[in-house]
Design a protein around this nucleic acid. Structure first.
Lengths: 125, 125, 125, 125
DNA sequence: GTGGTCTAGACCACG
DNA sequence: GTGGTCTAGACCACT
């Protein structure tokens, strides 16, 4: 369910974050579902527990998962839809970057919207 | 014409690359236009020449600018519109990331297309 | 009467302690009132008895409750109002922390006193 | 300027966070001031760089400090006054806890406001 | 069992 | 020089 891509320049803990969100978006993981413990996932992925822990902490900050003391970690029961200002600004900045990039490659706004729609549908289950 | 934000988490050389592309996309810089020398731009931006040089190297690799020995550096006369497979895949990967991110924040596909259109329009012509 | 929030970062046994004090402050529980046995409360709250026992021990140490062997556990007949130096210093330290926190968020001393008054009133009588 | 208190149950990285805020509130550190590098502070305090780095990252998330790539870390030039919802709720929760605690010790609302004012003034330079 | 914290190293990209 | 990431261990409190 989780796997790291060594070729990806993205940090491992960021890959874990992204994959967790992917599985939630896709419906593979639903509200309240238990997710692997830090240690288990670390073993599975051949990384150290600290790396997984860092990912889990960030996911909790973003209200994607919730940890229950001594019990484990779970998909948040009420996935938060009010992004904080910072995260939204960051996301928009990244979007601007990538749109610029694609425009430079010759794609029109409609092309890009088409890509977005395809990606969105594929996620949307 | 160029301005960097030292606090931005993005590397300075990447900011230069992005701004150069921005000005090309926007039409501020046209094919064949001369651009500042590495040293001049470094002075202007108050960064070390090495940083500017790194940006220029990458821009040249992407066929956005061309260096003519002894003459200076110019916007490429034939800006490359057929991206190689690798860069397209990379761009799509980034786009998927950011769409996932925005979806998790509660935005619909239409919302995201709206953002894309706004960004695209702002990039000009 | 008691309810825990497993997602709270605060330890469950600390939540029990706090709620016990809350009910005493509020007047729901008066001196001499019987409180549930460890096992009963553990069942009610769906936690392990050890967790409740730990809370009761700490409450007893703070002279909020008293255990009478063979009879049960009761709200202390003479709730301790003269805190020892240590606990007062600890409390003041925590208060300083939180005031600093709120100041950094932009709240004035009056704002904070307002919050304190509201909380105090809500605690009742 | 910074020192850790081993007796304090608070995590070291949290102590660093609190002390940084303290120095900012107190005026010892002003907007734009450079703060020690991760490594230097780690040496000074006899902790590992990772611990300091964790504190710095959290401080940056809270807009108290800013890092400039390859240059170092600085007190934020525009200290952020819009707390996010989460942090405010957390702070209020802590305040409620401590007010309850102090009430149980016999302090009135006025007493507590007095303490708050004293603390605030002492910080306020 | 769980997550949270910490140590003592290491390598990397950036400037 | 800087901060960011990661490893491979360890100890702790909580359940």
């Amino acid at each position: 369910m989780f796997s790291i891509n060594a070729k990806d320049s993205k940090a491992i803990y960021e890959q874990i974050i992204e994959q967790m969100k992917y599985h939630v978006a896709k419906g593979n993981l639903k509200e309240g579902d238990a997710i692997p413990s830090v240690r288990k996932l670390a073993l599975e992925m051949n990384v150290t527990p600290g790396t997984v822990a860092k990912a889990y902490q960030e996911l909790e900050r973003q209200h994607v998962i919730e940890t229950i003391r001594g019990k484990g970690t779970f998909i948040a029961s009420k996935i938060e839809f009010k992004p904080n200002e910072d995260r939204l600004m960051e996301a928009k900045g990244k979007l601007q970057s990538i749109v610029l990039e694609l425009k430079m490659m010759g794609y029109s706004d409609k092309d890009i919207c088409g890509m977005v729609n395809n990606i969105y549908k594929e996620l949307g289950q």
